[in-house]
Every structure is written in structure tokens, then in C-alpha cells.
Amino acid sequence: MTNRSTGKCPFSIVYTKMPNIVLDIAALPKSQSKAASTLADQFTSLLFDVRFKLEESNMQYKLKADAHRREKIFHPGELVYVRLRREWLPPGNHSKLTKKKWGPYPISKRINNNAYVVDLPAKFTTSHTFNVADIYSYVPPDDSSINIESVDTDSS
């Protein structure tokens, strides 16, 4: 059965052909035999093709995974919401309907693109260092008010 990533049967990659002969090419010294050198060259080209296919397959997997990712970079002083799991919340009654995102709180320090220190209040007994996946941008509400006027129509 052929592998989706390599396009070849795993046994044929490892053993250069279907299970009749087990031959370790690495143990072959420079040989005078034309058949042995041809087999070694075929095996080398096979390994090169497999390596190329695997790299190509990994690149396709990476492109598909990166399509769902977003890069988030925050700066110190920026206001953010923090997602706190139930275990990280202060002691008390918390149900599954308790809010998940808390804030807005300022970022006090950037460790790297993946970790930030958030200035949380003292009531939270958790670490103040968060992964970027648990941090959400704060968007202040608009100052403009929305006026909705009802329109009365006479319909007979």
C-alpha cells in the first residue's frame, strides 16, 4: 500500500524493492560490480525522491495549518482581554456560564511573540504570564449613539 506523503510503499523505501532481498546499501563499500553500483545509485535516487516528497508534503500541511492561524503581537501598555480557565479563577461558585474573557487589563511586559505578562488584579491567584492564544485585543466601544426611529405606517 502506498503512503500518501511519499507516494511509495514503506517497505520498498526501506528495502529498495518488495520483500525478496534485504540489502543494506550503507554497508556496501566501493564495489567493482556494475549491478551493485547500479542498485546503489537507484537506492540513492529513491531516497532523494522520498526526501523531496516528504518536504513537499510537509510544506502543504504547513500552508493548510497557517491558513487558520493569525499572528497577534501586542505591545506593553496595550489593553487586552485575558481568557481565564475555571481553575485559574478566584475561589467561588463558577458555572459554565461564567464569563471566559476578563479585562481589559494592560500588558506590562512582552517576553516574546508567544508569551506576555499581563497586569492582573490581586484577586487572581494565577500566573500573570499568558500564551498569545489566551489574549484577545480590546476594542473600545464607539462613542456614537445609535438612534432607531420607529416608522408608523397606516396600512388598511
Rank of each mutant, 00 (worst) to 15 (best):
Y15S: 11
W88Q: 15
I148N: 04
N131G: 12
Q60H: 14
E78K: 09
F130S: 00
S37H: 02
G7Y: 07
H128K: 11
F52M: 12
E78A: 09
I135R: 05
E56Q: 09
K62C: 08
A36H: 13
E78L: 07
F52A: 15
E149Q: 09
Y15P: 00
K17M: 13
V132L: 04
Y138E: 06
E87V: 12
E56Y: 01
E56R: 08
L63W: 10
L47K: 14
P29I: 05
P121M: 00
Y105Q: 06
S155I: 14
S31H: 02
S45H: 07
P29W: 01
N20L: 14
Q60M: 14
V14L: 12
A65F: 10
T6F: 04
S95P: 01
R70L: 12
L63E: 15
F74Y: 04
I21P: 00
P106N: 00
N112K: 02
M59W: 06
S33F: 08
L46C: 04
V139Q: 06
T2A: 03
M1R: 05
H128T: 15
S155E: 15
G7H: 07
S5P: 04
V50C: 10
V139L: 11
M18F: 07
S137K: 09
K72V: 01
Y138I: 03
G77R: 07
I146G: 00
E87G: 04
N20F: 13
N114G: 00
S37E: 13
V82E: 08
L47P: 01
V82Q: 03
F11G: 04
F11P: 00
Q60C: 12
Y136T: 01
S31P: 02
D41V: 10
F74D: 07
Y15L: 03
S137D: 06
T98L: 00
I107M: 03
P91Q: 10
S145A: 07
L79Y: 06
T16M: 14
I135G: 03
I111H: 12
R83S: 14
L54S: 04
K64A: 09
S137V: 08
F130C: 02
M18R: 06
L89W: 04
D66M: 08
A35T: 10
E71S: 10
S45G: 05
R51D: 10
D154Q: 06
D49P: 07
P76R: 05
K64S: 06
N131E: 01
S5G: 09
H128G: 15
S108L: 02
K34V: 12
D134W: 06
